[in-house]
Design a protein around this nucleic acid. Structure first.
Lengths: 170, 170
DNA sequence: TGATACAGTTCTAAAAACGAACTGTCAATT
DNA sequence: AATTGACAGTTCGTTTTTAGAACTGTATCA
């Protein structure tokens, strides 16, 4: 499996990772959600090399996650703003931040709080089941192949022909 | 900003990305949630090089995301299972898969469906506010510095002392 | 005139990933 | 007894990516 092919894998996770699954892309996206729009803005707040930044922005535009919009004419200048497809990445970002808040903070506590405008309170994101509204956890979920499946959802998973599981289950 | 330093950034997103923010790590984690536990299992279903796999697994263990547990003695063999910290990554995984299901599927539809054992139905994950229970979207959220903040949540913003770096000096 | 802001591009060195082969233990075959 | 195969890595030479720094080019400001 090469990275260029990731987008075509029959796995929504692999495809998504093909788009946003590298460190800088994720950091760039974080900046987008913090309202950064311009090349210099990304560059100076992230410290990313200009070369990579240009490349990543291009890719994100190609993928329809960002839109490149002119904001002045004289020297042509553009800003990068999230499309709806990009905005839809929000749950991913929030989930990442929340895991960091839970498992990676130092003694000082979380660096950033999130306030929900609607209810006015600082909140944590909670993931629930769309059908019954209960919070989700890995163990309560069973996966099964959907219409776009190929063999396993996975990549290859070669069949073990006989599986004589060594010296047994004790 | 070098990658080794990412974990110390005053930003939960950067820290999390330092742990799980590369393509193979994410794919390995996906396998974990699909119940893969052993080296060969990861290797053959992902097609990752053995070298990288070994490295990533070690890192995940160091970070407390996986635990390495012996399952036989003769030749020492271990399996890798998710710790609670690892299981807590579930919302991230689900968010990623869901975005892929929404924006990256081909005509055949989604490769994998998720059934909630509790209610028995195939579901989508929905992210809500822990305080009021309403679904979240980027625009309804306001961020502000928390106790662990440093200036911006952001990274560094290198000091430009006077910077006559460019085209002159000639 | 000269400096600065902005958005890139180009180039070389360093780091990471790939690919394939190799090591070593043990179980089951031949 | 020797061979094969499963399993879990490690080693090493090659290719690909990234880092880091400088350069290009337009236009405004002082």
């Amino acid at each position: 499996m090469k990275w260029g092919e990731l987008e075509e894998e029959p796995c929504s996770m692999a495809r998504t990772i093909g788009v946003i699954g590298d460190r800088w892309t994720l950091m760039i996206l974080r900046e987008c959600f913090l309202r950064t729009r311009r090349f210099e803005g990304f560059q100076s707040s992230l410290g990313i090399t200009r070369h990579l930044l240009a490349e990543r922005l291009k890719k994100l535009v190609r993928q329809g996650v960002l839109r490149r919009i002119p904001y002045q004419d004289s020297p042509k200048r553009h800003e990068y703003i999230l499309t709806q497809k990009g905005l839809d990445l929000y749950p991913i970002m929030m989930a990442i931040v929340h895991w960091g808040d839970t498992h990676m903070v130092d003694a000082r506590g979380r660096p950033l709080l999130h306030q929900h405008r609607k209810c006015g309170k600082d909140f944590d994101p909670v993931m629930i089941c769309s059908e019954c509204g209960e919070p989700l956890s890995a163990k309560e979920v069973h996966t099964h192949p959907g219409p776009g499946a190929r063999r396993t959802p996975a990549i290859a998973a070669p069949e073990k022909p006989k599986a004589k599981t060594r010296r047994s289950a004790a």
